[in-house]
């Protein structure tokens, strides 16, 4: 089950570039929250700070507080422990090329030392069903490599892999930007269903997508969060002039 996320005065840097400047917000549990903004505005950096993936870049650092449920992720736990609680779906589908579909789905469990075969089998079926991929691949789970699927299927496989660890939070960094419209709509349907169980944070450059899947939307600009409100409010009656310019397409 999802948990809510509380972010207080979060700052992040790449080298000397101040990519996130004093971000404060509260992301509610079991809802989808969209982050929009022009490219380079810091929205991707922001989600990468939520599971401490930001730190995998040696030049990067972050300060501030992020609380997920009971846990302050920068104080109470190591990056590895945090990432086990938080699923992440990346911009481009990145299944493990040497693993079968089955192994891809349970990779987060197996690589962390989980061995119970019965639960693994159950998890594969549950996750693939959650990712709406089960019907398409159930006959060659162990025969086919994850890389042999189509782009849209690969991305749903990555979603199955992320939900297989039963995370509390699901981060999606432009999950549909590399996909065709049909696959995109499938992914959007999925997000709509998955938010019943997980707290979902989705980064998108597509405003219609944000409007379709998310209850709340945050608008990022130049490393700052300009506005955060219900999606409906953001798209119909934004408080800030810059948000209005962006959503009406008047943005430079």
């Amino acid at each position: 089950m999802g948990v809510d996320i509380l972010v207080e005065s979060l700052n992040a840097w790449y080298g000397t570039t101040h990519t996130l400047q004093d971000i404060n917000l509260r992301i509610p549990a079991n809802h989808a929250t969209a982050l929009i903004g022009p490219s380079g505005c810091g929205k991707s950096t922001f989600v990468r700070c939520l599971n401490r993936m930001h730190e995998t870049n040696p030049d990067a650092r972050a300060t501030g507080m992020v609380r997920m449920g009971e846990i302050d992720i920068y104080k109470d736990a190591s990056p590895v422990e945090i990432r086990r609680r938080v699923g992440m779906v990346f911009q481009r589908p990145n299944p493990f090329p040497t693993m079968s579909i089955y192994d891809n789905v349970i990779s987060g469990l197996k690589l962390n030392g989980f061995r119970n075969r019965r639960i693994l089998d159950e998890t594969v079926e549950r996750s693939l069903k959650q990712a709406a991929l089960w019907e398409e691949v159930k006959d060659d789970l162990k025969k086919k490599s994850g890389a042999s699927l189509s782009g849209g299927q690969q991305q749903r496989l990555c979603i199955a892999r992320a939900v297989a660890v039963d995370p509390e939070v699901l981060l999606m960094d432009e999950p549909a930007s590399a996909l065709d419209p049909v696959s995109t709509s499938k992914i959007e349907d999925l997000i709509f269903h998955l938010k019943a169980q997980y707290t979902i944070v989705i980064v998108t450059h597509n405003m219609q997508q944000a409007a379709r899947v998310a209850e709340n939307t945050g608008f990022f600009l130049s490393g700052k969060m300009v506005e955060f409100d219900s999606t409906h409010k953001i798209f119909t009656n934004p408080r800030d002039k810059r948000t209005e310019d962006y959503i009406t397409g008047r943005f430079g």
């Binding site: 089950m1 736990a77 190591s78 590895v80 422990e81 086990r84 609680r85 469990l109 962390n112 030392g113 989980f114 119970n116 639960i119 998890t123 297989a164 660890v165 039963d166």
Partner: peptide, 15 residues
């Protein structure tokens, strides 16, 4: 929490 979740939460930081 599911069995999977409980197991993963029990794993150390492997630092």
């Amino acid at each position: 929490p599911s069995a999977v979740r409980l197991f993963l939460n029990s794993r150390g930081s492997s630092g």
